[in-house]
Each structure stands twice: as structure tokens, then as C-alpha cells.
Design a protein around this nucleic acid. Sequence first.
DNA 1: AATGGCATGTAATGTGTTACATGATTCG
DNA 2: CGAATCATGTAACACATTACATGCCATT
Lengths: 184, 184
Amino acid sequence: MVSVLGYALLGLLARAPSTGYDLARVLDRDLSYFWSARHSQIYPELARLERGDHVRHTVISGAGPRPTKRYEITQRGRDALTTWLVSEPEESIERNPTMLRISSLWLVDRAAARELLDGVRRRSTDRLALYRRFAAEFDAEPEASDPSSPAFATRATLEAGIRSQQARLTWCDWLQERLETGGA
Amino acid sequence: MVSVLGYALLGLLARAPSTGYDLARVLDRDLSYFWSARHSQIYPELARLERGDHVRHTVISGAGPRPTKRYEITQRGRDALTTWLVSEPEESIERNPTMLRISSLWLVDRAAARELLDGVRRRSTDRLALYRRFAAEFDAEPEASDPSSPAFATRATLEAGIRSQQARLTWCDWLQERLETGGA
DNA sequence: AATGGCATGTAATGTGTTACATGATTCG
DNA sequence: CGAATCATGTAACACATTACATGCCATT
């Protein structure tokens, strides 16, 4: 049995063999927009995956007091990953602290509500700009339009991020309008 | 120190006094679209909130082997909640298994990709319909347009859900198009 | 009288974060 | 030679889910 984190690691290893350190870097930077993990979680998970014959490692030369391990995905790992891709989705447990705040918006006065909303808008604007910069980089490269290229998949997740932030921004406008004109 | 779950409970108790059982029901049904918790997490959290003087309980008559407790928010709890509302947001750790799958979409053939995408679209469509039904109910009631009413805040979170699902659906179309016309 | 919902709690386990620990290599 | 980065691991703690445990009350 492979955990969701396990599939995240397999997905990255399907793109390129990596050290645990590499994976931690990617999961804490690039991929962090829809999944994240610290190295303290990654190293044990790699060991588990190796016990299940989903990955294997070879020791390479490198820094550090311990041997540096280069992990690669096995055929069994690749099979497990592609099976999972089209399997029934785990019901995603949404945990959205922003919406949790909004659900108590009725408690505060108009000024505080506007302040909260401005914060949401600001962060959404920044995030959107970031995604757009990334997307522009991908669009400059031809692989991004080849469905069998990793760049294609990354570009697709970026597009989802862009559209999601755009939707949130128009929602901010909608709510602002309703706050200003609202009764009482 | 109050946890995010603590604020979720305070937010519900600010709307109406409830038993832990009530809160569990709401958190597992209505509120589950942006937060969730089981009763095994809620009962200890209520005890913690009571130790911090954020809620208090009175024993009421009811079913069960143990005394039934009706919790209500205290002034201190209300203050903590409204302070949190406009405080710096915790950087939300996104965990989106769907996008994680999409990021490995390049591994599978066009048929499997289409299948995955159809699943995403189907679930999004269902969710959108559900949100719209809820929203229509709120729109029939006048309190939903009063910013100081709980219904206003709930209606706002519903709108965010609606727009987010709409954005995901147009993203599905975008990706489908790209998959069909894509190179290689 | 049986079933289902109300109602509260604990235990065990799984998942994720923070902190502790170590030291080699590379670049300035 | 000093600082930053590479690199791997464990320990302690926090947060969350599943399973265990109990038994009253209302409806059929």
C-alpha cells in the first residue's frame, strides 16, 4: 500500500532519478502549490517505497556524512503510479482557513470585513502573478504542448492555479460589492 | 493558544450554542467543504477551549450514558475569534490530490488521460449543482443579504465554491482541447 | 421489542511539522 | 578558511482518522 505522499514521490521520480534531498527541495518549492513534505517525512517514505520494490537506489559520490543515494523508480513503481492516476479519487479533505474566516465574517464591522477581503485579494493577486510568470516560461518551450512530456502536465497544473486565482479575485469583487450595498 | 480547529468551533458556537454532537454533524456535513473534523477530535478540543475560558457548558437533559453538554461561546472566545479573523493568515498548505494526479498525466496515453479528466469534470459538475441548490435556498431568504447575518457569510462561502467549480470546469475544457490537439 | 439516532468519551494508529544531530563539499 | 549548500537520518510533538466502548431516548 502506497500513501499519497508515496505517489507524489513516484511522480517526481518518474520524471528524473533524484536524491531525497532533491525531492525535498522540489516538494517545498515548485510542487508546494498542491503538495508539500519535509525531508523528515521523505526519507522514511523512500525507504518504505524501496521495501515495496517501487523504487531502488544506488550510492553515488556526494557530500554529507552518510552515503548519498540516487533513487530511481522501478517498473513496479511506474505501474502502481499509473494505476493510481485513473483510480477512484480519495475524497479530498478540503482545509481552507481563508473560507473558514469568511464564514465568520458576519461577526465583524464593515471596516474589518473590508480589511480581511483586501488581504485575500492581495495574496491572490501575488499568487496569480507568480503563476503567470511560470506559465510564460513554459509557453516559450515546445515540449509544453506535447501531452507525453512532463512539461505539459506541469503547464496544466499551472493553468488550474491561474484560473483558480482569477475566480477568487472576481469573487472578491462580488463580495465587496455585496458588502457595500448590503442591508442593515 | 487556539488551534484552527478551535476557531472553527468558536465560529459555529458564535452562531448558536450546540452540543459536541451537533458540531460534529455540521463539520462533517455542511462545513466539510472547507473544514472537517470527527467527534473524537472535537470533544477534546471543546475541553481545551473551556480550560482557556473561550467556551462554557451547561448540562442539559438528553440521551446517552453521559451528561449531555450544551456549549456556548464566552466573551473571551468571541474576542479571540474576531481577532483571528483579521490576523495574518497561516500560509495554507494546499494538498490537492487531483492536481497531484494531473502532474503525472504525461505518463499515460490519451484514452487514460481523457478518463481521468472526465472523472474530474463529473465530480466538479455534481459539486457545482449541489452548491447552486444551496445558494438558491439562501437567496430566497432576506437575511442572506445582510452582512451582519450568519446567512450572509455562508452565502459568501457558497459563492466562492460555485466560482471555484466553474473555473475548474472551464479548465477541464481547456485541457481536453490541448490533449486532443497536442503534438507527438 | 427492535432499530436508529443521540450523545460522549478513549485508544490506537497514521500523517505531518519542528527540532536535534552530523559532517562533507563547494565557492568565494 | 569561513559560509552556504548538499545530504541523510532520528526524536519529539502536534494534528487527524479509525476503531473501541457505552447506553439512553424516540419511533415504528
